[in-house]
Structures are given as structure tokens and as C-alpha cells.
């Protein structure tokens, strides 16, 4: 009788296609987000995240269609992030079939957006995505913008505390230092954020070995998000779950088909 740790597969989507390299067998079309979402669902992903990196209005409209088609055939929770600036943007995504949205840049620019979304749709729909790196702020962790390329001088722990008070339901903590390195999650950062936040914490950035996943859980993460290790087939979701189960972490069993 324990809440399972969640394994979340993340897909970067632009103009209706999955980008970043994918190296997947058994797929007719490796770039179709709906097909990949369905496959990850079968493989035992506990949640799916689409990060919409479209630069155009047309691209975002296409993402809405992808969300619609995914929600019609994949019956696990779907979070969509990227480019969300208003309550109206959230409304459109939820109506299309997203269960949660993640916000980042727009909330940094205008923190009241957090309260506006939480008041209208409830905290449970709102994931705060925090792209943080080690820097000389009070806590030693700084919020970055533009995919980690630009600093903000905002202290990451102070920002998490403020966002929780405004009503976010979950924190997605991306380590910009660890992202893409496959050298492990930033354990110190996870521990620090866990201490100031009572909402669920998703660790992201740096997953490489199977032991990296359990280390993030030991540091206080409730859920683990990964992209490239799954896309490139370095680990299957089932392998991660089997590893965690054998080390006595609670994971959701998925019936084999």
C-alpha cells in the first residue's frame, strides 16, 4: 500500500513531430508523437510529457491536434508544456485532452499566472518546470531561461517556495548542468528542492545508468523523467522499473501483452 514512483517519458514535439534523435524499433514512423506515446504507454510509462518547442502559431495548433489524438488512444496522464502564457492557453490544452500543463518562462515573467491557473483549474493541473543550474545565488542554484542558456539571477529555492505558495501542484526540476550528460541527476539540487517543497517533485536531466534513477529517489524525488535514454533505447522503461522493483522501490506493474 504505497504510492508508486512514477517513470515519465518526455517527448519534444515541434510542428506535430517528435524531434531530438529517436532510435526506436517496432515503430512505423519514429517521428510520430501519437505512435510513440502509445508505445511508451504499452511499455509501462506512468505518465507522458510533451514539450512543445514549436516556434510558430501553426506549430502550436498542430500540437493541439497531437494532444487530441493522443488522449483518444492513450489512457495514462499526459502533461503538455511549452509556450503557455495564459489561462486561455491552458484551457485549450485541457480541452484538447491534456491532464496537466507545465509552465516555465511565462511564470518567471509574471508569477501571478500561477495563481490564475490554479484558481481556475486547480493546483493539480499545474506543473512548474524549473530549469536550474549551479550558480552563485543564495542557495547556490539559479533559475535559467531559454533552455539554460541565460541566467535570471533568481534563486531557484526561493522561486520554488514562492511558486508553491502561489499554487503549483508539482515541480519538474531540470538540471541544466546535468541535462544531456547521462552522468546522473543533480542529487544535491534534488535534496535542496525537496527540503523547501511539499508538492510532488519530478527529477529531470542527467539520467544515464539504472543506479541514477534510484539515487534521485533516495534524494527525495517522487517521479523520474527521462527522454534520451528511452528514445535511444539505452534503457527500456520496463528495465528501469525492474531495477527499481528489485531494489525495493514501489513501482507500478504493467501486465505483459
Amino acid at each position: 500500500m504505497t504510492l508508486s514512483v512514477r517513470i515519465i517519458a518526455c517527448l519534444d514535439v515541434t510542428d506535430g513531430r517528435v524531434v531530438k534523435g529517436v532510435n526506436f524499433t517496432n515503430l512505423v514512423d519514429a517521428g510520430d508523437p501519437v505512435e510513440m506515446a502509445a508505445l511508451y504507454g504499452v511499455e509501462g510509462a506512468d505518465e507522458l510529457t510533451f514539450l512543445d518547442i514549436s516556434a510558430s502559431v501553426v506549430g502550436r495548433e498542430t500540437t493541439l491536434d497531437v494532444v487530441r489524438r493522443t488522449a483518444e488512444q492513450v489512457f495514462i496522464p499526459l502533461t503538455v508544456g511549452g509556450g503557455i502564457r495564459s489561462v486561455a492557453d491552458v484551457d485549450r490544452l485541457l480541452r484538447a485532452g491534456a491532464d496537466k500543463v507545465s509552465i516555465n518562462t511565462a511564470a518567471i515573467a509574471r508569477p501571478e499566472l500561477i495563481a490564475e491557473i490554479a484558481d481556475r483549474f486547480g493546483s493539480q493541473v499545474l506543473v512548474l518546470s524549473v530549469d536550474a543550474r549551479r550558480a552563485r545565488t543564495d542557495s547556490g542554484f539559479e533559475v535559467t531561461t531559454h533552455g539554460g542558456r541565460e541566467g535570471s539571477d533568481i534563486d531557484a529555492l526561493a522561486w520554488v517556495e514562492k511558486a508553491c505558495a502561489l499554487g503549483v501542484g508539482e515541480i519538474l526540476l531540470n538540471s541544466m548542468d546535468a541535462d544531456g550528460t547521462r552522468a546522473g541527476y543533480d542529487i544535491g539540487m534534488i535534496k535542496a528542492v525537496r527540503e523547501v517543497s511539499k508538492v510532488p517533485l519530478i527529477a529531470s536531466g542527467g539520467a544515464g545508468t539504472l543506479a541514477d534513477f534510484s539515487a534521485a529517489l533516495d534524494a527525495g524525488a517522487d517521479a523520474l523523467l527521462a527522454a534520451s535514454v528511452f528514445h535511444f533505447g539505452i534503457h527500456r522503461i520496463g528495465d528501469v522499473k525492474q531495477y527499481l522493483r528489485s531494489h525495493n522501490y514501489p513501482v507500478r506493474a504493467v501486465a505483459s501483452k
Binding site: L3, S4, R6, D46, E170, K198, V199, P200, D222, A223
Partner: peptide, 13 residues
């Protein structure tokens, strides 16, 4: 509960 919302997959009795 220490962490809220209760979010994710849980078992039932």
C-alpha cells in the same frame, strides 16, 4: 500526508 497532492499510481484494498 507529507506530500500533497496525492499524485500518481497507488494500490487499492
Amino acid at each position: 500526508a507529507p506530500i500533497l497532492p496525492h499524485m500518481g499510481w497507488n494500490t487499492v484494498e
